[in-house]
Design a protein around this nucleic acid. Structure first.
Length: 480
RNA sequence: AGGGACGUAGGUUAGCUUGGUCAGACUGCCAGCCUCGGGCGCUGGAUGUCGUGGGUUCAAGUCCCAUCGUCCCUACCA
């Protein structure tokens, strides 16, 4: 009856409003009392936990260890690497007082922890035997957002992990950068079912203070790009000001080679945008807090008992396969209400069991991604459900992959570029490599270089702006 | 950062132009019934410092100022 408890706008009619409703009504997060901050609710946090545990496991198997850094960084430390400081200072929150007393060296709420981490690393590293040092930190970062805040995509505080590694050679550090980027790709494509393009950022777009930045970039349904994760090669840019050095095997004091990298809860924002539909969230099974919801259908107390009994049996069978299963046995809601409610929350598979099903020895199974209904006999419970979950995970990825492929458009003509960018998408175009041309394109079209793909084709066409022969091709898009 | 719109019950909102029974509706919530398979039906009940702070006035949800917050369209960062 009431549509107001559901999503009231269509995804392709008012994307921004749709997104906000999905976040709030799907109970992923809510607004905090301070602008730009959100509260993660259990349903949203549990998606983060899924991501966190699979990434954490992968990092540990690569030899990384977890640590924890404090949230306050003295200005004197934050400003040691000047480019880095200049890049972050507009969005730093400052702590100026403790109680009523003004602090001398004011304290930044960390916008990122390179400076703090490396001031510690310089104390810990003495010899080549101390390397590599590979520490990951699960924490939050704070960057002031004055306007245009958006849950998960743009908030003043966000959950993330930041990894900081130190190596004795340039080669080993660069290898680390690429290993991490590949790890990110796997997480995003295999867990979140979101296809990405791997590549490098331009000089203009790289992390401030890095030698270069690698990235995985995804496309959203509105044709805008979203950076999904970055892995930076810092070279010796930080080891020099922070005195991160070691005695090498030849007893020569050497500055170390460093990397840093991170992914944030922005991935959850991407997940919502990429897979969601007019009914709400659509979660890939690998990260869904609830993978299978069972809606029992009954009228009489006798039916209630037998239907719930069978539901529990099914639940236990599936739990033995390590599936996350929930029975919605609330008496106060009708089955129809529950169907809509769990669809809004994106549960990948729903099982309906009623008296008629019991009589026939089967259940009704409904896929969230394509709404297909089918009968499944009780004997085939585990294989049937496991197969369907696998199909949903794959199906979501394939659909997103096809969208990405369609939206990558080769453009060598600037007039066509301008018209295409209005439609949204990834424009694969020649570029001379000069920041001036990149800036010109940004100024004229609003698009920037999102990624210079590693496996990019060479168009050998002239740069869109200066007409010099392109050094490389880049993917241009408007971004979040 | 620039432009536009808007804050009235948990949610969606009427009322504001023309200050004076204007504090209403729907939904949700609570209790009880109900053959509840796509937001079911019926009966009863609770819920508002009209975002906040000033001001004008005999009188402010309504007019003025400020402030906080939200949304939409452009410009920058995970």
């Amino acid at each position: 009856m009431s549509k107001e408890i559901g999503i009231t706008v269509k995804k392709d009619e008012n994307f921004s409003e749709w997104y906000t409703q999905v976040v709030l009504k799907g109970q992923l997060a809510d607004y905090a009392p301070v602008k730009g901050l959100i509260v993660l609710r259990p349903y949203g946090y549990s998606i983060w936990e899924s991501l966190k545990s699979s990434l954490d496991e992968k990092l540990k198997s690569l030899g990384h260890e977890n640590g924890f850094l404090p949230v306050l960084i003295p200005q004197s430390l934050l400003s040691k690497e000047s480019d880095h400081f200049a890049g972050f200072t507009p969005e730093v929150f400052w702590v100026t007082h403790s109680g009523d007393t003004e602090v001398g060296d004011r304290l930044a709420l960390r916008p990122t922890s390179e400076t703090l981490a490396y001031s510690m690393y310089s104390k810990w590293i003495k010899s080549w035997r101390d390397l590599p040092l590979k520490i990951n930190f699960w924490n939050t970062a704070l960057r002031a957002e004055i306007k245009a805040t958006k849950p998960f995509l743009r908030t003043s505080e966000f959950l993330w992990q930041e990894g900081h590694t130190v190596h004795s050679s340039k080669e080993e550090a660069e290898e680390e950068v690429f290993t991490i980027l590949e790890t990110y790709r796997k997480i995003v494509e295999e867990e979140l079912a979101i296809p990405v393009i791997k590549g490098k950022k331009s000089e203009k777009e790289k992390f401030v203070g890095a030698v270069y930045t690698t990235t995985i970039e995804a496309i959203m349904p509105d044709g805008k790009a979203l950076q999904m994760g970055t892995s930076h090669f810092l070279g010796q840019n930080f080891s020099k000001p922070f005195d991160v050095k070691f005695l090498d095997k030849q007893n020569v004091e050497t500055f170390a080679w460093q990397t840093s990298w991170g992914v944030s809860w922005r991935l959850i924002g991407a997940l919502i945008m990429v897979h969601g539909d007019d009914k709400g969230l659509v979660l890939p099974p690998r990260v869904a807090p609830i993978q299978v919801v069972i809606v029992p259908i009954y009228y009489s107390p006798q039916d209630r008992e037998s239907v719930l009994g069978k539901s529990n049996v099914i639940k236990e069978i599936l739990q033995k396969k390590n599936l996350r299963v929930h029975i919605d046995s609330r008496d106060e809601f009708t089955p129809g209400y529950k169907f809509n409610n769990w669809e809004m929350k994106g549960v990948p598979v729903r099982i309906e069991i009623g008296p008629k099903d019991l009589a026939k020895g089967k259940m009704v199974v409904v896929r969230r991604d394509n709404q297909k209904k089918m009968d499944l006999s009780f004997e085939n419970t585990e294989t049937g459900i496991l197969d369907i979950l696998g199909e949903v995970q794959l199906g979501l990825f394939e659909r997103a992959k096809q969208f990405l492929t369609e939206k990558i458009i080769e453009v060598t003509d600037f007039e066509k570029f301008k018209s295409e960018i209005e439609k949204g998408g990834f424009l694969h175009s020649p570029w001379c490599g000069d920041t001036k041309c990149e800036e010109k394109i940004k100024e004229l079209t609003g698009a920037d270089i999102r990624v210079i793909p590693f496996d990019g084709k060479r168009s050998n066409a002239p740069c869109l702006i200066c007409k010099n022969l392109s050094k490389t091709d880049a993917i241009f898009a408007r971004g979040y």
